[in-house]
Amino acid sequence: AQASVVANQLIPINTRLTLVMMRSEVVTPVGIPAEDIPALVSMQVNRAVPLGTTLMPDMVKGYA
């Protein structure tokens, strides 16, 4: 199954992502693919992302 990017902590709005904030997990619905984690580093989220939330393309500025 495809692993997705999941928030490893609460990520406040406009925060630049770092590796420690993200983990890969097989979840439904599928979000951003886990292999994109390196590309997500330093991108900003456009909303607060609670712990355990799957990151979707529309949550990350410049990803989609």
Rank of each mutant, 00 (worst) to 15 (best):
M59I: 06
M43P: 01
S4N: 02
Q9W: 09
A64D: 12
P38F: 08
V45H: 00
A3E: 12
T53H: 15
L17Q: 00
M21I: 03
A48Q: 14
S4I: 01
A3R: 05
V20K: 08
D36S: 13
Q9F: 13
P57T: 07
P57A: 14
P57H: 06
V49H: 01
V45G: 02
Q2E: 14
A1R: 03
M22F: 06
T53W: 13
P57W: 06
P29D: 06
M22L: 14
V27F: 02
A34D: 12
P33F: 15
V30H: 11
I13A: 10
L19C: 08
R16D: 05
P50I: 09
R23S: 10
T18W: 03
T18E: 10
L40S: 00
P33R: 10
A39K: 14
L40W: 02
A64I: 13
R16P: 14
P33A: 07
V6L: 07
I37D: 00
I13V: 13
Q44H: 15
N8R: 08
Q9R: 12
V30S: 08
L40G: 00
V30C: 05
Q44D: 06
M21F: 05
T54G: 02
Y63W: 15
M56G: 04
L17E: 02
A64C: 04
S4P: 02
L19T: 07
P12G: 07
R47V: 13
A3H: 10
L19R: 10
V60K: 02
T28H: 12
T54A: 14
P33Y: 12
R47M: 14
I32K: 00
T54S: 04
A34N: 05
P50E: 11
P33G: 07
S24T: 15
L55K: 01
V45M: 14
V26S: 10
I37A: 07
V26F: 10
G52A: 07
N14W: 08
V45T: 11
S42P: 00
S4L: 01
N8H: 11
N8E: 08
G52D: 13
A48P: 11
A1Q: 13
A64F: 03
A64Y: 03
Q2W: 12
T28N: 11
V49E: 02
P50L: 14
L40K: 01
V6K: 04
T53Y: 08
P50K: 07
L40D: 00
S42I: 03
N14H: 13
A64S: 15
T15K: 05
S4G: 04
I37H: 03
R23M: 05
M43C: 04
S4T: 04
I13L: 07
L51M: 15
D36P: 01
D58S: 12
P33D: 04
M59F: 11
Y63K: 04
V6Y: 02
L40H: 00
G52E: 04
A7I: 06
V30A: 12
G62I: 04
M22P: 00
T28G: 05
A39R: 15
G31M: 01
T18A: 08
